[in-house]
């Protein structure tokens, strides 16, 4: 019975709201995942547009949030990529905002966490790496692959270094996607487990009724930590995107 009451995986279930016609043997459907993705897009756009609606010289609360949000990413992109990297600003801003909003929406009770599905995070990560490759090859041609051949390395260990560099480059999308996925998944599972302890102890009655305060406190503290992690992972995703793009723009370093 206990094993059934704490079902930490149930929250990641994808529900179908209505299905779309199959294409190429794959079934497409409008799911809760799709709903929360669109909700995140809507919330981001709404906040930014509503925040700038009044175009006040002295910003109000919403406008301050909008401007802080904008300038935070702008500063980050400018710091890592320099002035020529500002054309990637919309991309980095979209990635950061999408991940951040998806994480924060997922923190609401009963809400679905889009970023806790490996397909979403892996797709975003692979997209970033493909953009890095495309930009690098477009800007530097074959010189881009000097990224894997560091200068000043003795010739007899160069193959090993190059191999390591290639592996490290190929592991980037894996680590980028899995980090976000793992953090979100683990955080939500741990939250669910501690909340489940509360429910179990209260249900058992007696001492457990009062002892439930401990897992409850733990759940509250973990919620705060998860909000921090939700922000931090979005930030890390965005800044690693910047760092990888920097490799594409300046492969010599």
């Amino acid at each position: 019975m206990a094993a059934q009451t704490i079902d930490p995986i149930h929250q990641f279930q994808v529900h179908e709201y209505f299905s779309l016609p199959d294409m190429g043997g794959m079934s497409f459907a409008f799911t809760n995942s799709a709903l929360f993705m669109l909700a995140a897009v809507f919330l981001i756009t709404f906040t930014l547009v509503a925040g700038t609606a009044r175009r006040a010289l002295v910003p109000g609360r919403l406008q301050s949030v909008t401007e802080l949000w904008y300038e935070f990413i702008e500063k980050m992109v400018h710091q890592v990529l320099g002035h020529e990297g500002m054309k990637f600003f919309p991309l980095v801003f979209s990635l950061f905002s999408f991940v951040l909003m998806a994480n924060f929406l997922g923190m609401m009770p009963y809400f679905f966490t889009v970023t806790s599905h490996v397909i979403i995070t892996a797709t975003l990560a692979v997209m970033v790496i493909l953009i890095v490759l495309a930009v690098g090859i477009y800007k530097h041609g074959l010189h881009f692959f000097k990224l894997f051949v560091p200068s000043g390395v003795p010739i007899f260990i160069l193959p090993f270094i190059s191999l390591i560099e290639v592996i490290s480059f190929l592991s980037r999308p894996v680590s980028l996607g899995l980090r976000l996925f793992g953090n979100m998944l683990a955080g939500h599972i741990v939250l669910k487990v501690f909340s489940g302890f509360v429910a179990l102890m209260v249900a058992s009655g007696g001492i457990g009724y009062f002892g439930a305060i401990f897992p409850l406190g733990m759940a509250v503290a973990l919620t705060a930590l998860e909000f921090l992690v939700a922000f931090l992972q979005a930030f890390v995703f965005a800044i690693l995107t910047c760092v990888y793009l920097n490799d594409a723009l300046h492969p010599g370093h």
């Binding site: 994808v14 799911t31 979209s94």
Partner: peptide, 20 residues
């Protein structure tokens, strides 16, 4: 669930990028 998630991710992120 991958195909539908991929489809909606492409729609949502593409929409977000264009809107941004």
């Amino acid at each position: 669930t991958f195909p539908s998630q991929l489809l909606w991710l492409a729609i949502a992120f593409g929409l977000l990028y264009i809107l941004m």
